[in-house]
Computed example of a mutant assay.
Amino acid sequence: MKKKTAAALIGTGMFFSMGVGAFAASNLQPIQAFLNTGLKIQVNGQSFTSSSAPITYNSTTYLPLRSVADALDVPVRYDAAKGLVQLGEQTQGVSIAAGFSDMYHTKEPAKTTYAGKDYKEVYYNDGDGDREGSFMLHPNKKYATLVLQAAALDKDITKFVVLDSDTRKELKSTSIARGEGLKTITVNISGSKELYVYGELKDGGKLFVPLTTSYYK
């Protein structure tokens, strides 16, 4: 239903309400258009208030793409260097390693190597006692899916959760057995700005998350 609605809105025409990069600026042409503040909009039967007023130009109404994408939970990305707007799930993954920050983030080969492979960058929680091994991710509503790899070392992780930190909605909950190797966990994160990821760890247990092979798309 959301995809059909998005297609209908795209047919109406949209504009992308983000900063204009050098590529886009070189292709801009001046036009005379009008802010259409009297237009009422509904998304899936519900009233929708845009962050920017629609624009009418040559009998076509254009809606702000960012606002509509947020309302439909459709990820949208803008690559200023390429002059490219991308809607929906990306065909190529974007590693979660970029911008990752946590006290258990390590590049030490002794900790980044698992089953004979060096993953270069890893979240490796080897703390003491029963604890919650956790970290934050910041997809910023740009992606539809999180593909996360994780392994339990020495002891099982009976609960591993991906939570939307703004809504507190549990997006995924699973377990990771210490003998199953790297487990691939796929999570629908459409509309999520920040994620809180945690595993309930027992004393002596460790959580291994390779950042280079975990990705958004």
Results as ranks from 00 to 15, higher is better:
Glu132Ser: 13
Glu132Trp: 12
Gly133Lys: 02
Gly133Glu: 09
Gly133Cys: 09
Gly133Arg: 02
Ser134Thr: 09
Ser134Tyr: 13
Ser134Cys: 11
Phe135Asp: 06
Phe135Trp: 11
Phe135Ile: 03
Met136Asp: 14
Met136Glu: 11
Met136Asn: 13
Met136Ala: 04
Met136Ser: 10
Leu137His: 11
Leu137Asn: 10
His138Glu: 15
His138Leu: 12
His138Gln: 14
His138Cys: 08
Pro139Gly: 04
Pro139Thr: 04
Pro139Cys: 02
Pro139Asn: 03
Asn140Cys: 11
Asn140Glu: 15
Asn140Ala: 15
Lys141Val: 01
Lys141Thr: 07
Lys141Met: 02
Lys142Ile: 01
Lys142His: 10
Lys142Leu: 13
Lys142Glu: 15
Lys142Trp: 01
Tyr143Cys: 04
Tyr143Thr: 03
Ala144Arg: 14
Ala144Gly: 15
Thr145Pro: 01
Thr145Ala: 06
Thr145Gly: 05
Leu146Ala: 02
Leu146Tyr: 02
Val147His: 03
Val147Tyr: 05
Val147Ala: 07
Val147Arg: 10
Val147Pro: 01
Leu148Asn: 01
Leu148Pro: 01
Leu148His: 02
Gln149Thr: 06
Gln149Met: 06
Gln149Val: 00
Ala150Val: 12
Ala150Phe: 06
Ala150Leu: 06
Ala150Gln: 04
Ala151Met: 02
Ala151Pro: 05
Ala152Phe: 09
Ala152His: 08
Ala152Pro: 10
Ala152Lys: 07
Ala152Gly: 10
Leu153Lys: 11
Leu153Glu: 15
Leu153Pro: 12
Asp154Ser: 15
Asp154Arg: 13
Asp154Pro: 10
Asp154Gly: 08
Asp154Thr: 13
Lys155Trp: 00
Lys155Phe: 00
Lys155Ile: 01
Lys155Gln: 08
Asp156Trp: 10
Asp156Arg: 07
Asp156Ala: 09
Asp156His: 11
Ile157Lys: 02
Ile157Phe: 03
Ile157His: 02
Ile157Glu: 03
Ile157Pro: 06
Ile157Thr: 09
Ile157Asp: 05
Thr158Cys: 03
Thr158Pro: 13
Thr158Gly: 15
Lys159Val: 11
Lys159Thr: 14
Lys159Phe: 00
Lys159His: 06
Lys159Asp: 13
Lys159Ser: 14
Phe160Ser: 10
Phe160Gly: 09
Phe160Val: 05
Phe160Asn: 10
Phe160Pro: 13
Phe160Ile: 05
Val161Ser: 13
Val161Gln: 10
Val162Gln: 06
Val162Ile: 12
Leu163Ser: 00
Leu163Phe: 00
Asp164Glu: 09
Asp164Gly: 08
Asp164Arg: 06
Asp164Gln: 08
Ser165Leu: 11
Ser165Lys: 13
Ser165Ala: 13
Asp166Val: 14
Asp166Ile: 14
Asp166Pro: 04
Asp166Gly: 09
Asp166Cys: 04
Thr167Cys: 01
Thr167Val: 00
Thr167His: 01
Thr167Pro: 04
Thr167Gln: 02
Arg168Tyr: 14
